[in-house]
């Protein structure tokens, strides 16, 4: 920890939250405005890398959903795969998306299997690329902490 840049460690916490929120915003608005699951996932990866550089890869990994990179990756893939099933059940081709509008008291909430698919892509990209990045950073980290062998 001592060797890390203090400013980065201090800035990392708010920045991490901002980037994650921004990535979620990009994910959710993606269907109508520029954005989407892939780009949102990439932004989340950069947040994770930021945390990894500032506080170490173990801490960054613990901050990932379910505490590891593999879980969000696999769950995301499963979500994306499952999102195609409702269309299949309706007798359409696999991945024909369904959409519903839920009316609450005064708010209309639009839901669809597309959203599920995009969340899946988001999680899969985040998990997979964060997994790569953290594993590579970890190797580097060790060298640094262990000093020259």
């Amino acid at each position: 920890m001592n060797s890390r840049i203090v400013i980065l460690a201090v800035v990392a916490r708010p920045l991490y939250l901002v980037i994650l929120l921004a990535s979620l915003w990009v994910l959710l608005r993606g269907h109508n405005e520029p954005g989407g699951g892939f780009i949102g996932g990439l932004m989340a990866v950069s947040a994770t890398i930021l945390w990894g550089v500032a506080h170490g890869t173990t801490a960054a990994r613990a901050r990932l959903p379910l505490g590891d990179a593999v879980w969000p990756a696999v769950i995301g893939l499963l979500l994306a795969a499952i999102s195609g099933v409702p269309g299949l059940l309706d007798g359409e081709a696999y991945l024909t998306h369904r959409a519903w509008t839920l009316a609450f008291v005064s708010v209309e909430l639009k839901l669809s299997t597309v959203l599920l698919f995009d969340i899946g892509v988001y999680l899969a990209v985040w998990g997979a690329l964060a997994g790569y990045a953290l594993a590579l950073l970890a190797v580097d980290e060790q060298e640094q902490e262990g000093g020259p062998a």
Partner: peptide
């Protein structure tokens, strides 16, 4: 039901 054509292609037409 999406206005972002790029995203619609990614998640729906070419899902």
């Amino acid at each position: 039901y999406g206005r972002n054509v790029v995203n619609v292609i990614l998640v729906d037409f070419r899902a």
